[in-house]
């Protein structure tokens, strides 16, 4: 039974099992990434010869307004939507996990639907809604709330707000589900004890739910940070990164420089910088993961 073949297949099994992941990872992620580092030091537009230019691209990057603007835009959009989204998600989750709430299954599904439906589809419908002659402006004007259409997509700040509204619409349900999961793991006896002591619903939310959810909320925040910096499809369709670069994100910049302007070298430099930002953020995420255990 314990023949040579059996021992061989037993010894190699774990390696054979992890091999597919590593082969695919090396070919489709790691090698391209290393190649990307190399390209970031060249001035390359897709032709045969790649000229080595040292740190030139990095100098351009650091002095380039577009790049800093894209980082700033991400931060602004983050500040605009994350507090609103997490607050909404927290309210949804705490109401939907309480015993007196009706139709919780229905509401949970409704709020989650935007997250699993196509970003492209949703971005296009928001384009129709936010258009200067779109439904939202028409309804507001016909109701006499405003007299001039609001330039939802045409001025920098409104464009950022519109992108933020779209992101809140898509991601509130997702965060609500994560928070619901956390709330269900809080022991019911804590709330019962609080009720016996005469604490109101709001008090037990403040003193039991919130402290227990602190880590999870931090986790959601970090996830949102990663999400904001890699935001692409929403501004790509809704605002095309404009007006005046106001909603251009780092990933949009990579896309534009590499596949539209064919500045492959410079695009790689942005990619590497983008990687560094994302790495710092993921390290924060891993730390939170570890503390959770």
């Amino acid at each position: 039974m314990q023949n040579f073949y059996w021992r061989w297949q037993f010894k190699t099994a774990p390696y054979r099992f992890v091999a597919p992941f590593f082969i695919l990872f090396v070919v489709f992620v790691f090698l391209p990434f290393v190649f990307s580092i190399y390209l970031s030091f060249t001035n390359w537009h897709g032709e045969e010869v790649k000229t080595f230019v040292g740190l030139d691209n990095y100098k351009t990057l650091l002095t380039n307004r577009e790049f800093w603007q894209s980082l700033l835009n991400s931060i602004i959009i983050f500040v605009l939507y994350v507090p609103v989204m997490l607050l909404l998600a927290l309210i949804f989750a705490s109401c939907l996990s309480s015993s007196w709430m009706k139709w919780t299954g229905f509401f949970r599904t409704v709020f989650f639907i935007p997250n699993i439906t196509s970003v492209v589809a949703i971005s296009f419908v928001f384009l129709l809604i936010f258009n200067s002659t779109g439904i939202l402006n028409q309804v507001l004007m016909n109701a006499g709330v405003i007299h001039e259409p609001i330039p939802f997509l045409e001025t920098p700040w409104w464009a950022r707000i519109s992108v933020s509204v779209l992101v809140v619409f898509r991601w509130t349900g997702y965060n609500m589900i994560l928070l619901l999961g956390g709330m269900q793991s809080i022991s019911k006896s804590l709330y019962e004890a609080a009720e016996v002591d005469g604490a109101s619903g709001i008090k037990s939310f403040w003193y039991i739910t919130l402290p227990m959810m602190k880590r999870l909320l931090a986790f959601c925040t970090v996830l949102s940070t990663l999400g904001t910096f890699s935001l692409f499809t929403e501004p790509f369709i809704l605002t095309k990164g404009g007006p005046n670069l106001a909603t251009t994100t780092p990933v949009m910049l990579i896309y534009k420089e590499s596949f539209q302007n064919l500045n492959m070298g410079y695009a790689s430099t942005i990619s590497i910088f983008f990687f560094i930002v994302m790495m710092i953020l993921s390290l924060m995420q891993l730390r939170l993961f570890r503390d959770n255990d």
Partner: peptide
């Protein structure tokens, strides 16, 4: 560690490959 390499940062070379 592989979690830390976002797809977007190796998009350019992957296209060449």
């Amino acid at each position: 560690a592989s979690l830390m390499i976002p797809m977007e940062s190796s998009m350019v070379p992957l296209f060449i490959i």
